[in-house]
Amino acid sequence: MSRKSLDGQVAVVTGAARGVGELLARKLSARGAKIALVGLEEDELKRVAARLHTDSDHWYADVTDHASMARVAEQVKARFGRVDIVVANAGVATGGPFVDSDPESWRRVIEVNLIGSAVTGRAFLPALVESRGYLLQIASLAAITPAPMMSAYCASKSGVEAYAHSLRAEVAHKGVKVGVGYLSWTDTDMVRGADRDDVMRELRQRLPWPMNKTYPLGPAIDRIVTGVERRATHVYAQWWLRGMQSVRGYLPGVIGTFGPREVRKVEGRAGQISRGLVGAGGEADEQTRSARGSA
C-alpha cells in the first residue's frame, strides 16, 4: 500500500496530553503535519504543543461533550482551513471484578472510550468529507480478546472497533477512509497506573507470551504513523497482533477455560484493586468531572 505524504496535512489528535496521543502528535508533526491537540490537561497540551515541529494549537475539551467537540471542530477548521486526519485516541481504563466495580467509573470508561469516539467522529466527519480524509480509531488488543477484570475496557474497545468498521462502509463512497488501530500493553501512564495494582499486574504477567509483555511506546507509534500515511484499514502497533485476527473466534473459549483458574488465585485479594480510573489521564478525567459537579 502506497504512503501519502503528511507534509501540510492537518491532523487532529484527541487524548493528546500524554502517552500515545502525545508521541503520535510529535511524530506526525515531524513528518510535516500541522497538529490540533485535544484533551483535558491544558498545561500538558501547551507543553506538547511547544515541542512540535510544525504549526499547532490546542483545545481543552471533554470528548463526550457534543457541544464542546462541535465547537472544537469548527475552531480547528477555522484555524487551519481544513482537517485531513483525525485520530480518536482519548481513553480511560479501570480494572477489577465487575460485581465490585464502581458503577460511575465503569460507566465513564464506556462514555469516554466509546461514546467519546463517536462524538469525535460526528464532529469532524463533515470536514473529513470535504478533504476526503482519514479517521483512525484507536482500539486495543482488548477488542480482539476478552479478559477477566477488564469488563468495561474490553466492552468499550470492542464497541469502538465495531463502530469504526460500520462507519467505514458508510463513508467510503464519500472518499473518507476509516482505520482501526490495535495496541497491546504499551508503556504509557495508563498501563503503568494499572500495574500499581499488584493483582492486576500478576494477572497480566500470567497471560501467554507475547501478551504478557509491556512494549515500548516508540516503535508502536512508528507503526501507527505508517498506518496513517497509508490510510490503512487496520493498524497494528505490535507485529504479532495481526496474527491474532485469525484466531480471535477461539479466544473467548480459551479465556473461559483458563481465566477462572487465574482469577481464583487472586480472588482473596481482589478487594485491594483500585475501583477508580487508572493513570494520570484517569485522574485528570475524574478531576474534571469533580470540578464540573461542584460548579
Rank of each mutant, 00 (worst) to 15 (best):
S2Y: 04
L6W: 06
V13P: 01
G15E: 09
G15T: 08
E22D: 11
R26C: 00
L28D: 00
G32Q: 07
A33N: 10
K34M: 13
K34Q: 15
K34E: 15
K34L: 09
A36C: 06
L40P: 10
L40M: 12
D43S: 15
E44N: 10
R51H: 03
R51S: 14
T54K: 07
D57H: 01
H58Q: 02
A61K: 09
V63D: 06
T64H: 04
T64G: 03
H66T: 11
S68E: 15
Q75L: 12
V76S: 05
G81R: 02
I85K: 06
V87M: 09
G91F: 08
G95Y: 11
G95F: 10
G96P: 09
G96H: 05
F98Y: 11
D100R: 11
S101C: 10
P103D: 07
W106G: 08
W106E: 07
R107S: 12
V109L: 00
I110A: 04
I110T: 02
N113V: 11
I115S: 00
S117A: 13
A118W: 13
A118Y: 13
L125M: 15
P126F: 06
E130T: 04
S131P: 09
G133E: 07
G133A: 04
Q137T: 15
A143K: 03
I144T: 14
S151G: 11
S151Q: 08
Y153I: 13
K157C: 10
S158P: 00
S158M: 12
S158H: 15
V160T: 13
Y163A: 05
H165K: 14
R168K: 09
E170Q: 14
V171P: 12
A172Q: 08
K177I: 00
G181P: 07
D189A: 15
D189Y: 02
V191Y: 03
R192K: 14
R196S: 04
M200S: 01
K213P: 00
Y215V: 09
G218L: 10
P219A: 10
A220Y: 02
I221D: 13
D222R: 13
R223S: 14
I224Y: 01
I224N: 07
V225W: 00
G227Y: 02
R230L: 00
H234D: 13
A237V: 06
A237M: 07
Q238K: 08
W239A: 15
L241E: 07
Q245R: 14
R248V: 01
R248Q: 15
P252A: 03
I255H: 07
I255Y: 11
P260H: 02
P260C: 04
V263S: 05
G268W: 05
R269D: 12
A270Y: 01
R275T: 11
A280Y: 03
A280I: 10
A280F: 03
Q287P: 02
T288V: 09
S290L: 14
G293L: 12
